[in-house]
């Protein structure tokens, strides 16, 4: 009887990121080619790993893979890349694609038992929502060690004898962490914003206008207040619900727009229009701020649902009333 054995496939990689790696990450942050920023799943090597070198598991989103390997200089290690459809570790774990089944399969596909003599694999801690450690060891024989939250702590984790400090186990969400997430949201609003500008243009043509420069920057400011300013200032804005925080920032913006345009001094700038802005702009900010819950690291499903049950109807009614007021105001002026 002949026993066929598959060849081991190991891809050599480096801990140095090239310009195109870094440029690729930058593009992904702006939503360019973000859904196709992937590496091939499989087993990679950095440095000169042997049978006793550690095995680090990650996702096949290229930004995840790159942020891990760039922290491994002067280290000999294996990187096991799971097929998460190009999604990062934490999100893929939530979806289940960074999961027990894929991990067990991938260990078998790369024939990990032939590459290393030990029986441990290091999973990033944020992969835990998708991985059942005891099931992995039951079916694959490999013991799961949960590593630190951040790739930058991996080296220290290994040096400390595979022990993560409480500090390494906690998720932070610093002002920088929040800032780098804002471009994608902002780009995501463009299509919708263009639709609004299209409608305003049509209303102008039909004679309901004029909607002009003030409306344009008032709206864009409200978008920025919800998409950028609220996320950046998040912990300092009073209140807990994201929509509420966004509404507050938007309200300040709406007041600013009104005062800047001479309300209450200029009689042409009517109360109706000012009220319209006060109803529409904070609600726009609230909506976009609410959507930042998906980018945040600490909101729960139950919590978001609770805030949305109040925020969504309030936003819809407020925007509707505001638009009616602004249109009525345009009519009066005709």
């Amino acid at each position: 009887m002949q026993i066929s054995s598959r060849e081991l496939k190991i891809i050599q990689t480096s801990t140095q990121l090239t310009f195109s790696d870094i440029f690729g990450s930058w593009k992904a942050r702006w939503g360019i080619n973000r859904m196709n920023f992937k590496v091939e799943p499989g087993l990679y090597s950095v440095g000169n790993p042997g049978s006793s070198s550690p095995v680090l598991v990650t996702a096949n989103y290229k930004m995840s893979f790159d942020s891990l390997r760039k922290e491994l200089n002067e280290l000999d290690a294996w990187i096991l890349v799971l097929d998460t459809k190009g999604i990062n570790v934490w999100c893929a774990a939530g979806k289940g694609t960074f999961g027990t089944k894929e991990l067990i399969n991938r260990i078998a596909i790369v024939q990990l038992e032939k590459v290393v003599s030990h029986k441990t694999i290091i999973i990033p801690q944020l992969g835990a929502p998708g991985i059942s450690a005891h099931e992995v060891s039951k079916f694959s024989g490999f013991k799961v060690l949960y590593g630190p939250v951040k790739a930058k702590d991996v080296k220290e984790f290994i040096k400390a004898g595979m022990k993560a400090s409480a500090e390494m186990r906690t998720v932070r969400f610093s002002i920088y962490d929040r800032l780098v997430l804002t471009p994608v949201d902002l780009v995501g609003t463009f299509r919708f914003s263009l639709m609004i500008f299209g409608i305003l243009f049509l209303l102008n043509l039909l004679g309901f206008g004029p909607f002009g420069f003030v409306d344009f920057y008032a709206y864009m400011g409200a978008v920025l207040a919800g998409c950028v300013l609220t996320p950046v200032l998040l912990p300092w804005i009073p209140g807990r619900a994201f929509a509420w925080k966004g509404w507050l920032v938007g309200l300040i913006w709406a007041a600013f727009v009104n005062v800047f345009n001479g309300w209450t001094a200029v009689p042409l700038y009517s109360v109706l229009r000012a009220l319209g802005y006060l109803l529409v702009l904070p609600s726009v900010s609230a909506y976009y701020a609410m959507n930042f819950t998906g980018s945040s690291t600490f909101t729960s499903f139950s919590g978001v649902l609770k805030e949305m049950r109040i925020a969504v109807p309030a936003i819809v009614i407020s925007i509707f009333l505001g638009i009616v007021l602004i249109l009525v105001n345009s009519f009066i002026k005709l």
Binding site: F242, A243, T293, G294, S300, F301, G303, V304, E307, M308
Partner: peptide, 12 residues
């Protein structure tokens, strides 16, 4: 726990 995503966009 009722596992879920804390994401308004996903809920919408």
């Amino acid at each position: 726990v009722k596992q879920g995503v804390g994401c308004a966009y996903a809920i919408i």
